[in-house]
């Protein structure tokens, strides 16, 4: 079963310039869990993840990672607590080869996957190591973006819409990968718009609306909770 909380977010506010985007987010993720943030476009899901990584211009409240308060830390210090981010836009570097992209993130803790283990999870990448990073297809870029953070020893992964814009067969492959990572003990906070995808993977779901958590649904309640979900997510 899930362990102690590894990420605790409380009364989190964030701003982009004058625009106040998060209005007191509150949620937690336990060691070994897969938790999703669900919600409509613009609800503040991606901003929440960016705020956790410390890359929003302004934030306040409390974010504790393994008990360490990080609200005042710069992003590189936060990353070194063993947390890694796979951004929505994937962030593959054009001036780096696939291999350089893969090896770019510095190792922040013991226990990361070896290069061979990462490549066996994503065999497509092994054949393209010398290509320019952005010459890969969208699906391959997404796999590379996930692959490179598995090497670093970070055990808490923030995945921002990993299935966005991808073909169903690739979405399935990413789903299998997330399940495999969970089995290996990774903790994952997943932002998704694709509820069908998220429902099969996650232990718990948080529903985000207007920059705050409005509901929490456990996977076991997904049957009865479905109506609540549809109510929240219906456009």
């Amino acid at each position: 079963m899930a362990g102690p909380p590894i990420l605790e977010v409380d009364e989190l506010h964030a701003w982009y310039g004058e625009s106040h985007v998060l209005h007191g987010m509150r949620f937690h993720v336990r060691e070994g869990e897969v938790v999703t943030l669900l919600g409509r476009n613009g609800a503040g899901k991606s901003t929440t993840i960016k705020a956790v990584m410390g890359v929003v211009p302004k934030r306040s409240g409390s974010i504790r990672i393994r008990g360490v308060e990080t609200i005042a830390l710069p992003p590189h210090r936060i990353a070194r607590l063993g947390i890694a981010w796979c951004p929505e836009e994937r962030g593959i570097f054009a001036s780096l080869s696939v291999l350089e992209n893969l090896l770019l993130p510095p190792v922040v803790a013991e226990g990361g996957l070896s290069r061979a283990a990462v490549l066996s999870l994503f065999p497509n990448l092994a054949e393209r190591l010398s290509s320019q990073g952005t010459k890969l297809s969208g699906g391959e870029q997404q796999m590379l973006a996930i692959a490179r953070i598995l090497r670093t020893g970070a055990r808490l992964l923030l995945l921002d819409e990993p299935t966005e814009g991808l073909a169903p067969v690739i979405v399935q492959q990413i789903g299998r990968t997330i399940r495999k990572l969970k089995a290996e003990g990774f903790t994952i906070l997943l932002v998704e718009q694709n509820f069908r995808f998220a429902a099969r993977l996650a232990d718990r779901h948080y529903i985000v609306e207007h920059g705050r958590v409005v509901d929490e649904i456990a996977a076991s309640d997904i049957g009865p909770g479905q109506d609540r979900l549809v109510a929240h997510l219906a456009v």
């Binding site: 410390g54 590189h76 981010w85 350089e100």
Partner: peptide, 25 residues
């Protein structure tokens, strides 16, 4: 070199490189 790959990556997207744990400043 590895240092050079940090440099090239940070030229493209400093925020992401810093979020990987590199002291970009």
């Amino acid at each position: 070199t590895r240092l050079g790959s940090y440099l090239r990556a940070a030229t493209e997207n400093p925020t992401l490189v810093q979020a990987m744990g590199v002291d970009v400043p």
